[in-house]
Amino acid sequence: MTPRGARPAPDRQPRSEAVSVQARNHTIGLGNRLSAWLLGHLHTIVFSLGRLARAPLATLMTAGVIAISLALPAGLYVLLDNLRTVSGQWEQAAQVSLFLRQDLRLEQAQAFADEIRSLPEVDAVTLIPADQALEEFRRTSGFGDALNALNENPLPTVLSIQPRVGVGAARIKLLVETLGSRDAVELAQLDMEWLERLFAMMDIVLHAIAIIAVLLGLGVLLAVGNTIRLDIENRRDEIVVSKLIGATNAFIRRPFLYGGIWYGLLGGLVAWIVVSIGMGVIDDPVQQLTHLYQSGYQLRGLGFGGGMSLLLLGGALGWCGAWLAVGRHLRAIEPT
């Protein structure tokens, strides 16, 4: 193309190596370009880690903020998870008490007990005859003399039903309803209401933890974003020079984004360690407590999967925070 008014350009001769090299650059294969691209990223990943390592104190402070933000909800969640496991075991310890009608004879009660025993949900049925119940009550309550004053036994015959292990709460409830509607039964009672209340409370706590986790996650975004923003400010000259020698925005963005990921991963790692140490610290008192309840419950920690999730979450949050900062602030830096 010869611009209007311009003299014809002199014949283009292969006058410099520059031209031929540029031509060669355009013809390198896709594979080479891909490996160059990968190497470029790899270089940036190592380079951005090196940058963090050169300012260890500042890096650890940012990672610390992230670690605390992640460790708090993670630790609470682990505790709640343990509580759920324990109370899940209690659920299986739920008992159904059937108070039979006073006028039922003992043989009828026994037949009824046999029938219940054959139900698939039921593990065992214990029949407590009214006389025996009275006797027991007399012994343990200390109201013996008062009871003697009564003409007849006020206590009913009771069937104590032990549901089979693994039968869910819903099926047990259904069982209670079915048995409660039978003629022989005066009252069917499930000793599980307090457990339901506990579950409801744990549900509330779980939601509260979720809210805390979201807020702290936002905190991580802001913390990483601010750190990256300062980083960008400190490297203003470098960014300007890089743009002048042909760096694309993507190229300039890259080390900051990887920096954010590194902060996040480091924060996640520290959080993992903090939670593990915390679980170790409360393990002893928990052992004592479960010993008192004669249960061999073992406290469950984060585990490998949980730890990896923390790492990934930290990395993702760090990347997002960096992205927020980079998107806003890099565009503002142009050579003048």
Binding site: N32, A36, G40, H43, I245, G246
Partner: peptide
């Protein structure tokens, strides 16, 4: 090396 790194040259 910076311009070459930016342009994506091989090591």
């Amino acid at each position: 090396a910076l311009p070459l790194v930016i342009a994506g040259f091989r090591h």
